[in-house]
């Protein structure tokens, strides 16, 4: 069994094989692999005994359930109104600069992916970003540099 298959099986054992377990299982795959590969989806379909197309349809509905390969650290910068007003553009440009990638891209070493997202619920402390599931509020160019540098050395 490949690693992905094992992971899916483990998650299905943990959450059960009813349809309602689909989200927790997809989330579990993201947690480990940062995206849900075609292999993972086929395997989930097999475990839950549903069509792979349904797994795909469900996964693509949710913006955090990426079906494209992503880096080890997925950075999502809030682009909604108050973060926009308070300088999300500069933050994104800074990250692009640091990682030498454009928005939507993944670094060559597969370590970082840079995306935007909608309101993260930190509007009073925008701009804000998530790195995987950790929020980083009150960003400016200096702060974001510090954070990214820190991750780069991880």
């Amino acid at each position: 069994m490949t690693e992905t298959k094992e992971l899916v099986k483990k998650l299905a054992d943990k959450y059960g094989r009813a349809r309602e377990s689909l989200m927790p299982i997809l989330q579990g795959v993201i947690e480990e692999e940062r995206f849900v590969s075609s292999e993972a989806m086929t395997e989930i379909a097999r475990e839950l005994d549903i069509a792979s197309a349904e797994v795909y349809g469900t996964a693509t509905f949710y913006s955090f359930l990426d079906t494209q390969p992503r880096g080890k650290y997925v950075i999502r910068v809030c682009k909604t109104i108050t973060c926009d007003m308070h300088g999300k553009k500069k933050v994104i440009e800074k990250i692009e600069d640091l990682l030498k990638i454009k928005l939507g891209e993944t670094t060559q070493d597969k370590k970082f992916t840079l995306l935007t997202t909608n309101c993260l619920g930190w509007c009073h402390q925008g701009p804000v970003m998530l790195i995987n599931s950790t929020p980083y509020p009150s960003l400016d160019e200096n702060k974001v540099t510090e954070i990214i540098m820190d991750y780069m050395s991880k």
Binding site: M41, T42, I50, A51, S52, A53, G57, T60, F61
Partner: peptide, 28 residues
């Protein structure tokens, strides 16, 4: 009960799709 096609994505990108947008001859 075949489910060869599904609704995929959301919002303006919502569309009818196969698994992984594969061509129709490669799905169930």
């Amino acid at each position: 009960h075949v489910n060869a096609i599904t609704v995929a994505h959301k919002g303006r990108d919502m569309k009818i799709s196969t698994f992984m947008e594969l061509p129709m001859n490669e799905v169930v």
